[in-house]
Design a protein around this nucleic acid. Structure first.
Length: 569
DNA sequence: GGCTAGACTTGGAACAATGTTG
DNA sequence: CAACATTGTTCCAAGTCTAGCC
């Protein structure tokens, strides 16, 4: 039970209204603290039960009749036939292993065992047809279908929490399917089981009505697995995932007050780090000179987390999960120290199996220390064998309450954005403003600042499918404009200057598009950049807030809108 | 103390809606 | 107005981190 700070009486901190951000400052948002007094909601929506299509499946050239249960899983695979997953051996193997027990129930004499002899093409063709039929629906039909869906879900969309109406995020229970792990995930292709009401725990206020168990259409009367009244958590429902055994939660949407308060608390914590970062940096500089190996490793690990914005790198089980690493789990094979004096190259797969590959100038002390850490070790050995995330996070607590490794990422991202945006006057020329218009020129610069943060955090994406095409089109356009320019020059036209500008703008756009083809800008905007930095900047430069923050982000960040123009992270 | 269940944030891709263009 | 591109939303996987168990 957390006492409300700032004179709110001895009640738990849940008495704020819709505009909670005018009343609280984020400091009362505590893990394990009381989150609500009353909680009422409509429960969850289940995916429809499987309807068999009866299309044939062939094994070794012959049609094999499938039961509904068998066909359902075959159809899951058929739907993924053209994806990269379906071509991977691990996926095929896990899929067959999941499918076999179902097939076993009926196959006599002609067991379906070898993946290579399976032919899903008729089922795949059927799925294509269905897709085409859906596409051919008229506008009216589509609208009608959407209306029906919305009506069926309406009771789940909002929750009533301490008299506030709050949007629920993911009230749809995940449908069964073939697990799509990222990277080389050992479990890819396994069957993710269907979730039934009996698997679900509902969390609801003590006096509130328990949400009705929906009729699934299977003629059975279902019940919730459990109903609890836990006011120290923010989830409305949960169930256990059959792939990894971890818990999946139904929580509120990003624009809810709970997420907002938590967000505010997160950024305030990161700002708090500003006051302590000097001491922390001084301490790791000292630590690198400490003859004790453990002290040295801790110092260098913190240095990398701070300067390279690495994640802490918790332990992973490579039999059950993809082999990815973070700072403390780096292995010798990921570290290259032969790229020049005091140059560190790190090449490893991080979260989501996204590759980190960058060479950074580091301080000589860290370079020297790293050399000693990898000495006499095998490629598969840990670089930081004497430190682990728990120890690091305990150590951080000596400097600041609540400080943990991830705070450094938030801190570095937000402070970078703030610093970059402070250079706006110098970076956006009057000429550019005149040529492109103020808002366009300013937003181009904002996006560069945003891109710098994304690169700091190594937020990458696959090149969009349309990229090459789009670039080719732009090139073509540039060529035409250049030809036009030539004509204008020849004619001694007054439009030469305007055309030159137009071309350079176009070329800048092209360059920008190409340079950001592999950069994912959204993640830093949504999770790392203190929104108040952006809001204040918009106010200072008279940029409409919807330019950097489209509708959903605006809703997510309502708490940040009233910040003063001179706000500093 | 070490371990892990549990809760919550972070993450890219897939999908849907909307905007642009020919 | 269809085809395509872009932007916005949903999905659900994959991290972090600590309370509380032994």
């Amino acid at each position: 039970p957390s006492a409300k700070g700032g004179g709110g009486g001895d009640d738990a901190g849940t008495s704020y209204g819709d505009r909670w951000y005018e009343e609280v400052d984020g400091s009362e948002w505590k893990r394990g603290g009381v989150k609500w007094k009353t909680l009422e909601h409509g429960g969850v929506m289940f995916p429809p039960l499987y309807t068999p299509h009866g299309k044939p499946f062939y094994y070794d050239g012959a049609a094999v009749p499938l039961t509904a249960e068998q066909e359902e899983v075959a159809t899951m695979f058929a739907a993924m036939r053209e994806t990269d997953y379906a071509k991977k051996e691990t996926f095929q193997k896990n899929f067959m292993e999941a499918w076999r027990p179902l097939l076993k129930k009926t196959d006599e004499g002609k067991p379906v065992k070898k993946f290579d002899k399976c032919d899903f093409s008729a089922i795949a063709a059927h799925l294509e047809e269905e897709k085409a039929r859906k596409k051919e629906m008229t506008k009216e039909q589509k609208a009608e279908a959407k209306k029906e869906k919305d009506e069926a879900e309406a009771h789940c969309v909002f929750a009533l929490i301490d008299s506030r109406k709050e949007k629920v995020g993911n009230f749809r229970v995940e449908p069964p399917g073939l697990f799509r792990g990222r990277g080389e995930h050992p479990k890819m292709g396994k069957l993710k089981a269907r979730i039934w009401p009996e698997d679900i725990t509902i969390n609801v206020g003590e006096g509130a009505p328990v949400p009705a168990v929906p009729d699934l259409g299977d003629g059975k009367r279902h019940r919730w697995g459990d109903v609890v009244h836990d006011n120290t958590v923010t989830w409305l429902a949960k169930w256990m995932d059959s792939i990894n055994g971890d818990v999946k939660y139904v929580m509120l949407a990003a624009n809810s007050s709970w997420k907002g308060m938590s967000d505010l608390a997160k950024y305030e914590k990161a700002r708090e780090l500003k006051k302590h970062i000097g001491r922390i940096r001084a301490d790791y500089m000292k630590g690198m000179k400490n003859p004790d190996m453990e002290a040295q490793q801790k110092a260098v690990a913190v240095y990398l987390i701070d300067r390279l914005a690495l994640r802490v790198g918790n332990e992973k089980n490579t039999d059950e999960e993809a082999d990815t690493v973070g700072c403390t789990s780096l292995r010798v094979e990921h570290v290259f120290l032969d790229e020049g004096d005091n140059k560190l190259r790190l090449k490893f797969l991080g979260k989501d199996s996204i590759e980190y590959d960058a060479t950074t100038d580091i301080i000589p002390e860290a370079y020297k220390a790293l050399k000693s850490f990898v000495k006499k070790k095998k490629p598969g050995d840990q670089v930081f064998d004497q430190v682990n995330p728990t120890e690091l996070n305990d150590y951080f607590k000596h400097f600041m309450e609540g400080l943990s490794a991830k705070v450094f990422r938030t801190y570095n991202a937000s402070i970078t954005l703030d610093a970059e945006l402070r250079k706006t006057e110098q970076m956006v020329s009057a000429r550019q403003r005149a040529a492109e218009g103020d808002v366009v020129a300013l937003m181009a610069y904002y996006n560069i600042a945003n891109k710098n943060v994304a690169e700091l955090c190594n937020h990458q994406r696959a090149t969009p499918a349309s990229h090459a095409n789009a670039i080719a089109k732009m090139d073509e356009k540039i060529e035409t404009l250049k030809a036009e320019l030539k004509e204008l020059k020849k004619a001694g036209s007054g439009k030469v200057e305007a055309m030159t500008k137009r071309i350079s703008k176009m070329e800048a756009d092209r360059r920008n598009k190409d340079e950001t083809k592999n950069v994912s800008l959204g993640t830093s905007k949504i999770n790392y950049n203190d929104p108040r930095v952006t809001v204040a900047w918009c106010k200072r430069f008279e940029v409409p807030i919807h330019r950097p923050f489209p509708k959903t982000l605006l809703a997510k960040f309502t708490w940040a809108m009233s910040v003063e123009p001179d706000y500093e992270f």
